[in-house]
Simulated assay, not measured.
Amino acid sequence: MLRLLMVGAGGIGGYYAAKLLDAGHQVVLTARGAHLQAIKENGLKVHYHDRELVHQPEVLDHQQLVASHKPDDFDVIVIALKATATASVLNELGVWLRRGRSPVLSLQNGVDNEPLLAEAVGADRVIGGLAVRIGGHIVSPGVIEAEGVAEIVMGVWPRTNGGSDGLILTVDMLAATFNDAAIPTQISDNIRYELWRKLVINNGVNPLSALTGLDTRSLTHHPEFSKIVYGAMAETVAASKADGVNLTRKDLDEMFELISSFNAIKTSMLVDKEKGRPLELDGIAGAVLRRCEHLGIKAPYTATMNALLLQNA
């Protein structure tokens, strides 16, 4: 049985927590506000396609977590927060995390979360990860709707070569455990490369969906918007060179074909905009723009969408 802490019980974290609870693992969740209270009173409810998963896990806010648990109470600590929350949560939990040796797995958008975690807890404890082909959202306090294949890709950050034997074995164990829990999981020897490939998709569709109100399929099959999606994705490919990842035109075309073949998914940035929540703009468009500036290259598609969303924030 896996003992797991899921920091963030939103659409992504809540879904994976429910699948692991379904498989008999022990999962502690963190949440806040009405969502926290609803899970405490009525349990966590996840609607996934034609199934409803209902569990009554232990759920805590961060103060309660620090007071009642040690980091090494858990086999792995999963961060499933919006990228906008990573720095602030590390301010809250950084001292607590450093008291233990449990590995920390990031399941977040963007390419800047793992470096922050490595700085906070040490690179020898960081596992990079990404959730792919999943849409998940809180539809009401305590209730989550999720769709898609809901795969995970994970690996020693920034790549297996150079990682400790212990962390490599942990990644192997986690992948086997997740697969046994009906969470399709793959291991990457170069997780930074995979994170950048996902950022290519996210920067292509997330900002534009927030501006237009359209889902991924509508954007990628629109005669004009599809050009903007492709252009922003191309700018992300160019930006990857700042991190030494060096994505290619082949990566660009593969990612565009992949997102074009998806079912119609409402992006997380569009959902956040509709609900009046902060957008993951800095972790997606901002990450691209900072690296393009460093490289001395222009990113007009990304810069324009970023400016429009900031203007309307």
Results as ranks from 00 to 15, higher is better:
Arg3Cys: 04
Arg3Ile: 05
Arg3Lys: 15
Leu5Arg: 00
Gly10Gln: 02
Gly10Phe: 07
Gly11Glu: 07
Ile12Gly: 03
Gly13Tyr: 06
Tyr15His: 15
Leu21Thr: 06
Asp22Val: 02
Gln26Ile: 02
Val27Met: 02
Val28His: 02
Val28Arg: 02
Arg32Tyr: 05
Leu36Val: 08
Gln37Gly: 00
Lys40Gly: 04
Gly43Met: 01
Val46Ile: 12
Tyr48Lys: 14
Leu53Asp: 11
His55Thr: 12
Leu60Asp: 01
Leu60Ser: 06
Leu60His: 01
His62Leu: 04
Gln63Thr: 11
Leu65Phe: 11
Ser68Trp: 02
Lys70Ser: 14
Asp75Gly: 12
Ala83Ile: 07
Ala85Lys: 12
Ser88Pro: 00
Leu93Thr: 07
Arg98Ile: 07
Arg99Gly: 06
Arg101Thr: 14
Ser102Trp: 00
Ser102Asn: 05
Asn109Met: 02
Val111Ala: 03
Glu114Trp: 09
Leu130Gln: 07
Ile138Gln: 05
Pro141Gly: 00
Gly142Cys: 04
Glu145Lys: 09
Trp157Gln: 01
Pro158His: 03
Gly162Phe: 04
Thr170Cys: 14
Thr170Val: 13
Val171Thr: 11
Met173Ala: 15
Thr177Ile: 13
Thr185Leu: 09
Ser188Lys: 06
Asp189Met: 06
Ile191Glu: 00
Ile191Thr: 00
Ile191Val: 07
Leu195Val: 05
Arg197Ser: 06
Ile201Ala: 13
Asn202Ser: 08
Gly204Ser: 09
Thr212Cys: 09
Thr220His: 02
His221Asp: 03
Lys227Gly: 02
Val229Pro: 01
Gly231Lys: 11
Ala232His: 04
Ala232Ser: 15
Val237Ile: 13
Ala238Lys: 02
Ala239Cys: 10
Ala242Arg: 11
Asp243Arg: 04
Val245Leu: 09
Asn246Tyr: 11
Thr248Ala: 04
Glu254Met: 10
Glu254Pro: 03
Leu258Gln: 10
Ser261Trp: 01
Thr267Cys: 13
Ser268Phe: 03
Val271Ala: 14
Asp272Ile: 05
Glu274Thr: 07
Lys275Ala: 14
Arg277Thr: 06
Pro278Ala: 09
Glu280Leu: 07
Ile284Asp: 12
Ala287Glu: 08
Ala287Thr: 09
Arg291Met: 06
Cys292Gly: 09
Leu295Tyr: 05
Ile297Asp: 01
Leu309Arg: 07
Leu309Cys: 06
Gln311Arg: 15
Asn312Asp: 13
Ala313Asn: 14
Ala313His: 13
